[in-house]
Design a binder for these strands. Sequence first.
DNA 1: CCATCTTTGTGCACGCGTTCACAAAGACAT
DNA 2: ATGTCTTTGTGAACGCGTGCACAAAGATGG
Lengths: 257, 257
Amino acid sequence: MATGRTHRPATRSRGIPEATVARLPLYLRALTALSERSVPTVSSEELAAAAGVNSAKLRKDFSYLGSYGTRGVGYDVEYLVYQISRELGLTQDWPVVIVGIGNLGAALANYGGFASRGFRVAALIDADPAMAGKQVAGISVQHSDGLEKIISDNGVSIGVITTPPGVAQQVCDRLVAAGVTSILNFAPTVLTVPDGVDVRKVDLSIELQILAFHEQRKAGEAGEEAAANESAVPAPVGPADPTDQGPDGDVPAVMPA
Amino acid sequence: MATGRTHRPATRSRGIPEATVARLPLYLRALTALSERSVPTVSSEELAAAAGVNSAKLRKDFSYLGSYGTRGVGYDVEYLVYQISRELGLTQDWPVVIVGIGNLGAALANYGGFASRGFRVAALIDADPAMAGKQVAGISVQHSDGLEKIISDNGVSIGVITTPPGVAQQVCDRLVAAGVTSILNFAPTVLTVPDGVDVRKVDLSIELQILAFHEQRKAGEAGEEAAANESAVPAPVGPADPTDQGPDGDVPAVMPA
DNA sequence: CCATCTTTGTGCACGCGTTCACAAAGACAT
DNA sequence: ATGTCTTTGTGAACGCGTGCACAAAGATGG
C-alpha cells in the first residue's frame, strides 16, 4: 500500500471528515457480519446497501482512509475490517467507567456492544451508598467517593454519564479533573467542558421530539387545517403569568447528590 | 428502495431546516428551566449560552419560526415555550409503544423524559411469554402477539425498538404494517422502511467508537507513534481468515497489532 | 418628540458534506 | 496480448449549515 513514505504518519494529513468518522462504525458492523459469513470480498454497492448509505458516499469515505479496494473486484472484507478498526482505534483496549447506575446505567453495563470491540467496563460508579457492592452485569458497583482513584488506577479516558441531570455537570467536572478526556452523556443537560475534552450526547427526549415534529408534519399534510386557530395563543409580549406553571419539567427526578 | 428519481427535498415542511428542528428541543429545555424560575424574558445571548449554541445560530433558528422576539428586549419565555412546543407538535398527546423490554426497554419505560412533554407510554411489548403481565414502570407488559391490535386501538404512530438486533427488522415491519410511521431504533441494525416512515437511530456502540477515534487522535498527537508498524497487517487481498469468530454481531475481529 | 441604546433579524460569504459522472485500473476471457 | 467488462477512486458542482457583521426596530430616558 504505497501511500507515500511519510516517515511521520502520526499527523499525516488526517483530514478524515467528521461525517465519515461517524459512518465508519456502520461500515465496520456490516463488514463484520460479512466476515462471519466468510464472504471474502464485497463491492461498494453491496456494502453500501448493507450499511444503508449511498455507494458513492461509501467510496469517498474509504478514499480518505486510502486505496484499499481493487477495481473490478471490490474490497477485501478482512482487510477492510482491520483498517477501519485500526483507524477507529479499536485495536486497543479502552477502559470505560459508567457513572450513575440507575436503570439506564445498568442497561448499558449489560449492553453487549459495550464489551465487544475493545471497550471494557472498568468500573460502575454510583453516589448512592446503598448501591455500593451490588453486582450489576457481573461488576461490583463502587461508591463515587473513589472516582478519582478508579480513573487513574485504570487509566480511564472515556466516561459515560447516566446520572440525573442535576448532578451531571459536577460528575463531568470530576471526571475531567481526574483525567477523562472523552465523555458520553446520557443526562439531558448541556455539559460544559474545557478544551481538549470531547463530549457526545445521547438524548432520548430530543430524539422523540424530532420524531414528533415530522409526525405532526405528516398528519398536517393530510388533515390540512385543524391547527388553524393561531389566535388562541398567549399574548406575544406580556407579563409572565405563572399560573400555568405546569409540571412540564423535563427532569425525571431529583436525586441524592 | 433508492428509486433515485424521487429526489426528496429534505425538509419540505415549513422550510424549517432539519438542523434547526434538531435544536428546538434544546432551546425548549432551556426555556422550560427559565420558565420554572419565572424568568419573564431572555436575550438570544443568554438563551444561547444556556443551550450551548451560538447566539447568531439561535436567532436564525428562531427566525424560521417567525419574529417572536422584541428588539432591545429579547424573547418572552412563556410565549416562546408555547411556540416551540406547538411547532414540535408537543401540544398534543403522542402515544408510544416500546417493543423489547430488556434492560434498555425497562430503562426507557422508567425514563421521566418520556412521560413529560406529551409523550405517553401506551404499551410495553415483549416477545417473551414470561414477561407478559409483569409490571415495568407501573405498566403491564404485553405479549407481542397483540402488537397490531395495541397499535390500532391506541392510535400509536411512534414506536421504540429496544429488541435484540436479530429481530429488529421484523418488529419494525410489523410496526409499520400496523400503522406506525415514526420509529426510534436502539437496536444496532440498519432498518429498512417504506417511504413516508421516519427512522431515527440511537446507537451506543457507534457513539463510543467515535469517541475512541478522537481519543486515539489525541493520544497519537501526544505520544506520537506506537502505530508505526503498518507492515504487520493482513495481506491486502487474501483468503478470508475465519479464525476470529465471535458470538454476537459485534466482534473485535482483529487482534492488536 | 427626539436621541440613544439594546437586541433582534438577516444578507452574505464561506466551508463542509453529498452526489454525480467518468476516467483509470485491474480482472478475465479469448 | 488484446479487448471487454466491472468497479474503484475522484474532480467538480451543488446545497446546506454556520458565523459574521450590520441595519432595522423598538425600548427607554430626558
